[in-house]
């Protein structure tokens, strides 16, 4: 049982000693309005898409397409897809549905040949880097006795490999720290461009042409929602008959 905490303290944060082992975080309420990844979040009654009528048409179309159109995988082959799908879940902590389709979003960008404007001199082009990362994740898993590759390795081994990847500590056939930068840049910009992630973190959204008026500490626009933290998720779900 976790000790009582509030958002005014920072005791829930990883650097303050909070437990960050895999698995769903404790104390987070279940989402009541809109969707968040895994239906957990800090703002259970906030749905950024509810404000979409106040956005300009171009922005609205761009954001809604991310929700409505999950493109097929076209760039990665089947094995790469299998490996990288699990990798994306592990690095973003997506352990259940609903998931933000990170791999599909990355695949679309690579398929379309969209680049980020730079390549390290000792690195292959970004699309090639992604393919090599997939192969190397599988190789690292096999070295740890998982013949099926990264996707079939247990959660503990997957986390061990990703931790090594993030620290540049693996012996791969490309510079590991730079490869981490390439893939995480793609993963993060996919995940946090999705309005479900905005719901989870309480981001106010595009706000054009409406804008923001309440800028002070602790202030909210009327459509923004207060955070909630101490809700007991089990009791909350039972109380509201969500099971």
């Amino acid at each position: 049982m976790a000790s009582p905490q509030t958002l005014a303290t920072a005791e829930h944060l990883p650097k303050r000693g909070c437990d960050t082992t895999p698995g769903p975080p404790r104390q987070l309420p279940r989402q009541r309005a809109g969707t968040t990844p895994q239906m957990r979040g800090r703002y259970p009654d906030y749905d950024v898409l509810a404000a979409a009528a106040h956005w300009d048409a171009k922005t609205r179309r761009a954001v809604f397409e991310r929700v409505a159109c999950v493109p097929p995988i076209r760039f990665f082959d089947e094995q790469q897809e299998r490996t990288l799908r699990v990798f994306c879940d592990v690095v973003m902590g997506q352990d259940s549905e609903p998931r933000i389709p990170v791999l599909e979003m990355v695949d679309t960008k690579l398929h379309a040949g969209r680049l980020d404007g730079f390549r390290h001199h000792d690195m292959p082009p970004d699309p090639q880097t992604w393919r090599q990362v997939a192969a190397n994740l599988d190789r690292s898993a096999r070295e740890r006795g998982c013949t099926g590759g990264f996707a079939d390795a247990g959660s503990e081994i997957q986390h061990e490999i990703v931790e090594g990847f993030s620290k540049g500590r693996l012996d791969w056939d490309l510079p590991v720290d730079k490869a981490w930068g390439v893939v995480m840049r793609g993963v993060l910009s996919a995940f946090y461009s999705h309005p479900w992630a905005w719901n989870e973190i309480g981001f106010g959204g595009p706000a054009y042409p409406r804008g923001y008026a309440r800028l002070g500490a602790g202030q909210r626009e009327h459509w923004e929602s207060p955070p909630s933290f101490e809700v007991d998720p089990v009791g909350d779900v039972r109380e509201r008959g969500l099971e």
Binding site: C18, T20, L28, H159, M184, Y192, A197
Partner: peptide
């Protein structure tokens, strides 16, 4: 949000730890 995620990542966080800092 994307800029903030890159900030959190650069401090060495991924997975649940990154999500926690992002929720914050």
């Amino acid at each position: 949000p994307i800029g903030w995620a890159e900030h959190v990542l650069a401090d060495g966080h991924w997975g649940q730890a990154l999500r926690e800092y992002m929720r914050d």
